[in-house]
Design a protein around this nucleic acid. Structure first.
Lengths: 186, 186
DNA sequence: CCTAACATGTAATCGGTTACATGATTCT
DNA sequence: AGAATCATGTAACCGATTACATGTTAGG
């Protein structure tokens, strides 16, 4: 099983979806921590189906093309449940901006400041976006949905991580700018 | 040019190194934000050499196999300098633990707590490691090396990012545990 | 004797992106 | 007339990992 497979099972555990729906979700919500293009999703769904972890029914539509609505099977739910609490394997980090930071001693400080100002702005904007989603969610949250067994719970945990991550990243950018603005010897 | 190419140029801008040395560096320092195995490094060095961005001299050694000591060329330094301050392209995030967090509503809370306790510990240990490196660096830092134009400057910026990242990650794990320990309705 | 460190490469495979391919409907 | 959304697929390519391959010396 691949991580993409688990990601798809996770989305289908919440509700039945088409390949197209799954690809859309990966441009929103889920895309903040896992993503894939439709060209990867369709073959992976076919693979999951061949292993009996998902199944689909063809929905015929007038005025729209037909679609395959996938749902998770009991076997799929079982391996997903088993996976969620097993330790995650640590993937190597590859962050282009930190790589640039490592080499920044070669650059003119003014240009470096400009770069980090742009990056800070980018992360502040993403932070504001996440915070807005968080507020909207809080407002519409019913009492019975405030359960560890509601799929909304998972959405909150992941959104909170996004907020913390973007805030921390933006603050590092700011700190880097401060270091670059300091005179060389003091 | 690939990011790996720039990473190698960045390491060679600091000082001349062999492919073996570069692979070792990517298990330490540089590996915290960019990594590659020797099987990827050797062909990439050959490619950089064919494009005139690096060059090497063969060092014959008694009692050790011969080695190729690579150094950056003026052309290599130029494209590296040009790259460092150009905006970084944002790569999609793929974090297995956040994916698990998203699906955690399917798990038994006790098992979920165990998972996040393990993960918190892992990040606290990595944080302690980074902080130790930071302290050692501070201690041995000479006045003339406290310049934006010293390669140590880049090492500090990247190390600071590692510290911030691990601290924030560990704190999120702790917060998740708190959410999981709360009674469902309160 | 076996393992670790030094030292350099190639081949097979895999996960993911980009591009190719098709086709209907709705909105501007 | 053209773009956007819905809807599903395949093919080529690329970056990265794992495994294959070789050979020396030092140390437990």
């Amino acid at each position: 099983m691949t991580n993409l497979g688990y990601a798809l099972l996770g989305m289908l555990a919440d509700e039945s979806r088409t390949g197209y729906d799954l690809a859309q979700l990966m441009k929103q919500q889920v895309g903040y921590f896992w993503s894939a293009k439709h060209s990867q999703i369709y073959p992976e769904l076919a693979r999951l189906e061949s292993e009996g972890l998902v199944a689909f029914e063809v929905i015929e539509q007038q005025d729209r093309p037909h679609k395959k609505l996938y749902h998770i099977t009991p076997a799929g739910l079982e391996i997903l449940r088993n996976w969620v609490t097993t330790p995650a394997e640590s993937a190597p980090v590859r962050d282009e901006l930190i790589l640039k930071a490592y080499c920044i001693w070669l650059a003119e400080p003014e240009k470096a400041i400009e770069l980090f100002k742009q990056e800070e702005l980018r992360h502040r904007q993403q932070l504001a976006h996440y915070e807005q989603l968080y507020i909207w969610g809080e407002e519409n949250l019913q009492r019975e949905q405030r359960s560890k067994h509601s799929s909304l719970f998972g959405k909150y945990l992941s959104l909170a991580r996004g907020i913390g991550h973007e805030r921390e990243y933006a603050e590092w950018c700011r700190w880097v700018i401060e270091q670059l603005e300091k005179p060389d010897f003091f």
